[in-house]
Design a protein around this nucleic acid. Sequence first.
DNA 1: CCTACCGATCGGTAGG
DNA 2: CCTACCGATCGGTAGG
Lengths: 194, 194
Amino acid sequence: MTLVNASSRRKELIRIAARLFVVEGFDRTTVRMMAQEMGIKSGSLFHHFRDKQEILCAVIEEGMHNALALARLALDEASATPGARLDAMVRAHLETLLTDRNAHVVALYEWRRLDNESRSHLVHLRDAYEALWKQVIDEALDAGLIRGDPLSVRRFVLGALNWTVRWYDPEGPRSPESLARELVTMITHNPSAS
Amino acid sequence: MTLVNASSRRKELIRIAARLFVVEGFDRTTVRMMAQEMGIKSGSLFHHFRDKQEILCAVIEEGMHNALALARLALDEASATPGARLDAMVRAHLETLLTDRNAHVVALYEWRRLDNESRSHLVHLRDAYEALWKQVIDEALDAGLIRGDPLSVRRFVLGALNWTVRWYDPEGPRSPESLARELVTMITHNPSAS
DNA sequence: CCTACCGATCGGTAGG
DNA sequence: CCTACCGATCGGTAGG
């Protein structure tokens, strides 16, 4: 039970830290802020984490882990046509950005604040995620749904999607699904094949 | 002459600060670092700028000013067809991102560190720039070159372009022009009309 | 543009 | 998980 509680406190801190890192930025978020929201003293934080860096790494790792799981699930459930798989992947990406918004904003903005150790650990998760994208994009290119160089297309599409965290309003009129539809419409040239 | 030198020192500081803000981030860049690269003592910085915030604002303002000027020039020189204007705008955007890379990376990453005063000052420059994009995108939509909702398309395109600062390698095989061509190819549906 | 310095605050630790 | 505290460093200022 002690372990369960410790783990749940850890998750709570990750959630709190993610929110603070978004609002204040990593550098301006002090261990005292995080401790206060946890209801403990600042020194006690270091019972859960070695240092501030480790908290940053945990926040980003949590977000990437969820993103990877959701994308795999979406691809498993999608029908086998390249169009359906592209749709599913775009939708999964946007849904992840929204449900784990704070973690992903931190990943996008504070990646450079990671030390080498944390970065090399997270880079494997990122590579696994991008490998899924590579597969889906390449299939869509082969099927003639999209035009362009595989690597460039992947980068452009991920850029367009990741940029949404800057302007998308979850309270607004657009659902993640309709937004996904809009992006796919913009880049596909032969919708009947999907 | 004193004024000229003061202004040139100011520009030098803006360039130095931009580079440091990219490498270290705004919060981790100390006034002492900037002063050292200027060859002066830290206290002397405040002869040129009221505070650190003002330096951040100046860096971003410089980049936006150049972006706006280059975009206007490109549109003036482009032929009147929607395809040519879209091409020119994408190319100008990428060229600006490269020539003023540091300033734009700072604008993209450190925008949230601006105080309200600076932000409202810069927001007008950004709006003017986005108005050019709105025009060009709407023309391309009307001409049937692109498909989708005007606002969404604009956001997707700008996202894809701005994201390039994360991966584009100026020493690599791709020129800004060929990259521009790739993006336009990906999103246009009726190239013969351009 | 410099010297000398300030009050505040930071991440992290020792010992319980 | 707390108390008490550390050395370092920060942005900025006063007076020249």
